[in-house]
Computed example of a mutant assay.
Amino acid sequence: MQRLCFTQSARDGQRMQEFTDEVATLRRHLDSVDNQLYAHDLHLRRGRDVRVVLLPLRGGLSNRQRGSGP
């Protein structure tokens, strides 16, 4: 019985690690898409008063600071 519980616990731990890795991969992908959208938005705003600031790692839309319009 203990062996069965240990085996199940090891499987659960492995599944949890797989899900954690998948979440990290998806987060990186979303960050990449988010950065592409931000760059596209800056391209569309060309000619306006836009201030570009460096984003912290894993920065999202809420972390971005943009200059106000004219």
Rank of each mutant, 00 (worst) to 15 (best):
M1L: 07
M1F: 08
R3Y: 10
L4R: 13
F6G: 06
F6V: 12
Q8M: 13
S9Y: 06
R11E: 09
R11V: 13
R11S: 09
D12W: 09
G13E: 03
Q17E: 05
E18R: 10
E18H: 10
E18D: 09
F19I: 10
T20N: 00
T20A: 06
T20S: 06
T20P: 00
D21A: 02
E22I: 00
V23P: 00
T25N: 08
L26K: 04
L26G: 02
R27E: 05
R27M: 01
R27F: 01
R28Q: 09
R28W: 04
H29E: 11
H29R: 09
S32P: 01
S32T: 11
V33K: 09
D34G: 07
Q36G: 05
L37F: 13
Y38V: 10
Y38T: 11
D41Q: 15
D41M: 15
L44E: 07
L44C: 05
L44R: 11
R45T: 10
R45Y: 12
R45D: 09
R46F: 11
R48M: 11
D49W: 00
V50S: 09
R51W: 00
R51M: 01
L54Y: 07
P56A: 06
G59M: 01
G60K: 02
L61E: 05
N63P: 00
R66S: 08
G69C: 15
G69H: 15
G69P: 13
